[in-house]
């Protein structure tokens, strides 16, 4: 927690000197110097935001658990439970995409832009597969939003998570397009880091959600 007790601001006299490497060429060395110091704030802010965001899910999960264990009516009439097989495949795809995005991050760090784009696109494809799979599942379900607390909380949880996946995909597409802009080599490093962090967050949330809704079926 050193960063809490000591301000990370470097004295202006040193930071005003031009960085000999130049921040654009050497993203790794720019920490605490020049532009890098600002980017660190972005990550600080982003981590604070994600911590706060995770509490919305925590609140929804707690609400779900309370309903599940105490609601007098749970599954609507004619509904046996949730099909697990397809969602499990979806889960495996989404969770593996966390590894793929890490590979993309590593490729960027090693300045292999083509490789980065390939892994990045693969992550996007896996995320898209997940969202499409979710949509297909929704279409085939025999209960709706108004089917008691079960239906409502199932759609609220999966829908709110799905919204996050779509947001992540949009951010990735945005960064991918930016990486194609000529003359701009690596300044998106921090953006990539943030989106990748967001993607891991979305995956972890999904694992909890999957356990709560699909694995914990009996009560």
């Amino acid at each position: 927690m050193t960063s809490l007790s000591q301000p990370a601001v470097t004295p202006p006299s040193t930071s005003a000197l031009p960085d000999p490497n130049g921040p654009e060429l050497d993203p790794g060395a720019s920490h605490g110097h020049g532009h890098g110091a600002h980017a660190d704030h972005t990550m600080t802010g982003f981590v604070i935001f994600l911590a706060s965001e995770s509490l919305i899910f925590l609140a929804l999960f707690v609400g779900y658990a309370v309903y599940k264990s105490s609601a007098p009516l749970w599954l609507p009439a004619g509904v046996e439970g949730l099909e697990v097989r397809e969602p499990l495949i979806n889960t495996v795809v989404l969770v593996s995409s966390s590894l793929v995005i890490w590979l993309a991050e590593r490729a960027l760090h090693r300045q292999r832009l083509g490789e980065f784009r390939a892994w990045w696109l693969l992550t996007m494809a896996m995320g898209t597969y997940f969202v499409v799979g979710q949509a297909i599942e929704w279409q085939h379900l025999s209960f709706g939003l108004a089917s008691g607390v079960f239906g409502a909380s199932f759609y609220l949880l999966t829908g709110f998570h799905g919204l996050h996946v779509v947001t992540g995909l949009a951010l990735m597409a945005f960064l991918l397009v930016r990486s194609l802009r000529p003359g701009l080599v690596l300044p998106e490093g921090k953006g990539v880091l943030a989106v990748s962090l967001f993607w891991h967050f979305v995956d972890v949330i999904w694992v909890v959600l999957f356990v709560l809704t699909y694995v914990w079926q009996r009560r």
Binding site: V9, T10, P12, D19, H33, A37, H38, T42, L184, G191
Partner: peptide, 16 residues
């Protein structure tokens, strides 16, 4: 997530 190619001589603590 704004990032830029700002010159290093600018104040590091704000986005200029």
């Amino acid at each position: 997530m704004a990032s830029s190619t700002s010159s290093p001589s600018l104040d590091p603590r704000v986005l200029k």
